[in-house]
Every structure is written in C-alpha cells, then in structure tokens.
C-alpha cells in the first residue's frame, strides 16, 4: 500500500519536472533557455565522469580530453574537410571512444593516485597539443565558424530547437547511464570499487570491468563534446584544460558521486556559478578553487546524499512519531 502511494508521488514529481522542462522555452527568454542548454551539456559530461569516479572509484583528472577531442574532431572535419554533420558526429564520437580505449589501457596500469596522475598527464599532453598543433587546431585562436546541424529539417540554430535537442540527448544519456548502473555489469563495477580483491576472487575480471567503464565513460564524454561544440560553435584549448576537467569533477563531487542525481545537481550548480557569480567578480578560477576546497573539506559526500540523509532522518523521526510497524527497508 505505502509503496504504491510512494510510487504515485514519485511519478507525480517526475510529471511535474517533465512538464516544467517542456514549458521552459515558452515561458522564458533566450538567455535562460541557453543557460539550461548549457546545463544539459554539463550534466551529460558530469554524468559520464561519474561512471568512473562515483561507481568505479577511479578519479579521473583528465575527462575534459574526451569532450575536447570530440569537439575538435567535429569542428575540424566540418571546417577543413567540409563534411556533413550526419557523417561527422558518429566519426567524432567513435574516434574519441577509440582514444579512450588507448588512454584507459595506459591509465589503468595504475589505480588510486597513480591513476589520477596518469589521467592528468595524458590530458595535459592533449591540451598542450591543442595549443601547439596550430596547423590543425589553429592554436590559441581556436576553431570557429561551425554551424549547428539541422536534423529532419529542424534548424538547431534556433534556441528553442537546440534546447529540445539537448534535452532529448540528455534524457537518453541519463537513461542509458542509469541502465548501466543498475545492470549486472554496474553491480560488478561497484563491487570492484568497494572490494577489488574480493571481486577477482569471485571470478570477476576487475581490470576489464574498469577498462570497459573507462571506455563507456569516454563515449558519453564524447557525446557531451559534440553537443558542446554544437552549442558554442567554437572550440578552444581551454576546454581541454585541467580547469575544464576540474569543473566536471566538481559537478560530480558537489552533487554527490556515485548517485544518479548527484552530477545533475552538481553540474547545474557549477554552470550557474560560472555564469552568475563569475559575471560579477570575474574570478572564476579562484571561485572554482575555493568551492573545490570547501566541498572536499566540509561536504565530502556531496549535496544529494547529504540532503537524502537529512530527509531520511526527518522521515525516520516522523515514522517514530507515527509509531507503526518498523523494519521497512530503505528504497
């Protein structure tokens, strides 16, 4: 009985959220619609990183590589080769995923701190490459002049059209990542995070599980990269810099790593902070640094689990007050 009621309230909340997201473009100005589109892209990026950080216990400091490489490939193929978006998008995503195969193989020679250092070193090398390989990347000028695609004749240059496009991709990404997390493979991944030694004694190939996750995470990072370059119509080496990886990571950690909602909330906060606060003080990097230090020291579990715990506590207190049959399991 209670479970049914609970599901209904949950369903109602989802319906409200969906209605709100659909209604946004009709109620708000372009500025806000664009802001939401940016949040969507950041959410895909953070959610893809969360697969590694939150569920695999592998903190990557170089996730911006996948966003950046996919974006650069898209821009370069479009501008220099003149190919159509329909061809470019899969090539950019597959190409970047292949790179994730190689990077994962290198980075997963280590775990823990070594993994962090390797991912950082690899991404910094790519970042340096983006700056210096002027012949391909136009260096510090970045690649500019891309247009957005027009799938089925719907021109994504239109703010609202892009908003819905980004919304759909985000929903698909989150649904796929949610499936992944709740699948047998996802369960095994969480097992390797908590007890890698035990997992291999149970017959699980820990290295392979991690590597496949690394690659899949790179795949969604690449999707975020393609969306990113569509939105900005421009790509610059900074998008591959450590700050860019750090923004994604902050989104994951601030929201709560290892939860599905965490990166959504976290990425939204990071984008909002970047757009609003840094608009006034123009010191985004410093703010980013301070927020990082603050989160790690004072809120290491992140917002979503923190709020969840608070909510459960309140509910438990209410349950005690109502004093009915105990022993119901948490969802």
């Amino acid at each position: 009985m209670t479970a049914g009621v609970l599901d209904k309230t949950k369903l109602a909340w989802w319906a409200v959220l969906a209605a709100a997201l659909v209604a946004v473009p009709f109620l708000m100005g372009d500025f806000y619609i664009n802001l939401l589109s940016q949040i969507f892209i950041a959410v895909i990026f953070a959610a893809s990183l969360n697969m590694l950080v939150g569920y695999g216990g592998l903190t990557s400091l170089g996730h911006a590589s996948y966003l950046g490489v996919a974006a650069y490939m898209s821009a370069w193929l479009f501008l220099k080769m003149g190919w159509s978006h329909l061809v470019i998008a899969p090539i950019a995503i597959i190409g970047t995923t292949l790179m994730a195969c190689a990077f994962g193989w290198i980075a997963l020679r280590a775990t823990g701190l070594g993994f962090m250092m390797l991912t950082l070193a690899l991404s910094q090398v790519l970042w340096g490459l983006a700056y210096r390989w002027v012949g391909v990347t136009d260096g510090d000028n970045g690649l500019r002049g891309l247009t957005r695609p027009a799938p089925f004749g719907i021109d994504l240059e239109n703010t609202t059209a892009f908003y819905f496009f980004a919304l759909i991709v985000t929903v698909v990404a989150l649904a796929m990542i949610s499936r992944f997390v709740h699948s047998p493979f996802g369960a095994a991944l969480k097992g390797t995070r908590d007890q890698p030694r035990r997992m291999s004694a149970l017959g699980h190939n820990v290295w392979m599980i991690r590597w496949l996750t690394f690659v899949y995470s790179g795949f969604w990072g690449a999707v975020a990269g393609v969306m990113f370059v569509y939105y900005n119509k421009y790509i610059h080496p900074t998008s591959m810099a450590l700050t860019s990886s750090a923004e994604g990571l902050l989104g994951v950690i601030a929201g709560g790593s290892g939860t599905l909602a965490g990166p959504v909330v976290g990425a939204a906060i990071v984008v909002l902070l970047k757009n609003y606060v840094s608009g006034y003080v123009e010191r985004w990097n410093m703010l980013l640094g301070f927020v990082f230090v603050f989160i790690v020291i004072f809120m290491p579990e992140g917002l979503v689990p923190g709020m969840h715990r608070l909510w459960n506590k309140l509910r438990a207190r209410k349950a005690v007050r109502d004093s009915n049959t105990g022993g119901r399991e948490k969802a």
Partner: peptide, 19 residues
Amino acid sequence: NSQGQVLVTLGVSLIIADL
C-alpha cells in the same frame, strides 16, 4: 583521504594561479 587531498591541492593550485 588521499583522494580528497589531491582534489584540495588541485583547488589551491587554481586559487594560487588566479592570485
């Protein structure tokens, strides 16, 4: 908390660079 420490050093490096 070695992971937390790395993240903090990352944060502080951003702060120093901006300073």
